[in-house]
Write a protein that binds this DNA or RNA. Structure first.
Lengths: 101, 101
DNA sequence: TCACCCTATGTAGCGCTCTACAATAGGAAA
DNA sequence: TTTCCTATTGTAGAGCGCTACATAGGGTGA
């Protein structure tokens, strides 16, 4: 109830991608086709709104797999609620497939 | 090939909606959930790019049905080609359903 | 050795998108 | 008789999204 966060279509799409199990920025970029300059600022705004929450992966894990560290995101309770309202508003968001890994 | 028109995700979504058989602005708004301030400027830009083409319906038809006149859009050949490239880039656009009327 | 690709996050500035409002005209509600 | 709803197109200004580029370490190719 209460504060009714309104999302743009693109932000809602990114939120839904996280909800579908894609867990970090690069993963969201590949799933959606959206560029980094859209995805990273949007993830920051979604986190500031309290809809997602991030944690950096352990440095040792990234080193072991020889790649940069990932910042993992997941939906908060508020994010889950806001997402379900966004899917009502934007009917085309319903067709997201879950992440395979 | 040649001129490679690049579209934003939202513009591509609107182009695809026209391709799926939705024929005028209000129709696109209902199909997508996007607001008028997104849809009408975007349709104007898509027409300026030569991807869609518009024709006003006959005044007599609108009068007979007691509503404002509609501006009907359809894809051009360039629009069809650009749309198929956009669907490759943005995989989530594939799930559009056709217009019922 | 230099160029380039891969994975991953991030930013500047321009241009597109969204909220809110307007115009128009008919009908219904109060 | 003013307000509200429907159906349709449209705009101003604020804010979001996109292109192009940056960073960084490792691998691959000539």
């Amino acid at each position: 109830m209460a504060d009714e966060v309104k999302l743009t279509h693109t932000s809602a799409l990114i939120l839904q991608t996280i909800g579908a199990g894609y867990r970090y920025g690069f993963d969201v970029m590949e799933a959606t086709g959206l560029p980094s300059g859209t995805v990273y600022p949007a993830l920051r705004r979604l986190e500031q709104l309290g809809l997602i929450h991030s944690t950096w992966e352990k440095e040792s894990k990234a080193l072991a797999e020889q790649r940069p560290a990932r910042k993992y995101y997941k939906l908060t309770a508020a994010g889950t609620q806001t997402l379900s309202k966004a899917v009502e508003r934007y009917p085309l968001l319903q067709h997201m497939k879950g992440a395979s890994s």
